[in-house]
């Protein structure tokens, strides 16, 4: 790949930004995307009151901040765009066209790219952030969903809900280099902080699959069953891990719980009751609080991590999908 001076400069700048979290706004504001009301609800971190209702294109789902946190990107599935929200103004300032029905994405600021799974066209698209155009598309198995970019930006992992596969895609070559078969309807990823393991939720088989990244094979799996629930209601989707790599939290969809997993032993240490069909889950930077988006309850459950208790539920928009915090 040809590298010009400008992109080198940008790359250097991006690195500086990545290692300088001082550039963060630290507002602590909580952003919730709502699939059916086509908006982001912004909550105050202390009072949990709605401080802003940002109108977006239709069906906003996955959200990511730019490295300097001056912008928030949100994928809007029914209008085939990623919208860019200015964090100072809290309004949409730009629209980047994507493929058909964008769902989740990853940003590589160094290369100025967005990698996005297009659920309907079954592709992983690479978008040039500055030009706002799709520069490459990789065909995937049906309904690609979760994406995760490797630390060096060379590999992107994509789940396929129809294929029950995780694809390993070479970002430079722009092709699939390996596949691994996982549980039924794989959804989202997390990486252990030691970078050795990739965790993937399998929604329909009710499991988390653990993939050894070096060998790219399944090295284990965790099955969930909160007390009193039916196995068929356990539909894990979202997951998040603490920075020390000790604890993972997994949302269990129709089972209306968040599972707490001890990562080194892969043992489930508890279940926290939340709202109806939780998917999106986010930890605050201080790891004291969890926010869970309850898709069929139109609310967000706020959990105190230490006591493992749900503190409060806050109504948001219709069908909340994900939560992201500016802290």
């Amino acid at each position: 790949m040809p590298v010009d001076r400008r992109s080198l400069c940008l790359a250097a700048l991006a690195i500086v930004l990545v290692i300088a979290p001082a550039a963060a706004n630290n507002t602590g504001l909580i952003f919730v995307s709502n699939e059916k009301s086509n908006n982001l609800i912004v909550l105050d971190p202390k009072t949990h009151k709605v401080v802003k209702d940002i109108k977006t294109s239709r069906r906003p789902r996955d959200m990511h901040f730019s490295a300097d946190r001056s912008q928030l990107y949100v994928a809007c599935g029914d209008d085939d765009v990623i919208e860019v929200i200015d964090m100072a103004k809290l309004e949409v300032v730009r629209r980047i066209p994507t493929g058909n029905s964008p769902e989740t994405f990853a940003i590589d600021e160094r290369r100025r790219r967005i990698y996005i799974a297009n659920e309907e066209s079954s592709t992983l698209a690479t978008i040039d952030i500055d030009k706002g155009i799709i520069v490459h598309e990789v065909p995937t198995a049906g309904e690609p969903e979760g994406v995760l970019l490797s630390e060096d930006g060379r590999i992107i992992y994509v789940t396929s809900e129809v294929g029950n596969l995780v694809h390993m895609v070479d970002t430079e070559g722009g092709h699939v280099i390996n596949d691994v078969v996982v549980g039924t309807r794989p959804r989202r990823f997390a990486v252990t902080p030691d970078r050795k393991e990739l965790w993937v939720t399998a929604e329909l088989s009710g499991e988390v699959y653990i993939i050894d990244r070096e060998k790219f094979v399944v090295s284990g799996k965790i099955e969930f069953l909160p007390p009193g629930m039916r196995k068929s209601d356990v539909t894990p989707v979202g997951l998040v891990m603490t920075a020390d790599g000790k604890t993972a939290f997994v949302t269990l969809g129709h089972a209306a719980h968040v599972a707490v997993v001890d990562v080194p032993t892969r043992r489930i240490t508890g279940y926290i009751l939340v709202g109806k069909r939780p998917w999106g889950i986010t930890l605050t930077r201080d790891e004291r609080t969890l926010y869970v988006a309850n898709g069929l309850g139109d609310d967000v459950t706020i959990i105190d991590v230490k006591s493992r208790k749900a503190l409060q539920s806050v109504p948001v928009g219709r069908v909340p999908w994900g939560v992201i915090i500016d802290d």
């Binding site: 198995a141 049906g142 294929g163 596969l165």
Partner: peptide, 9 residues
Amino acid sequence: DEAQALSRA
């Protein structure tokens, strides 16, 4: 058609 992408794997 959905199966075609699995053939490779």
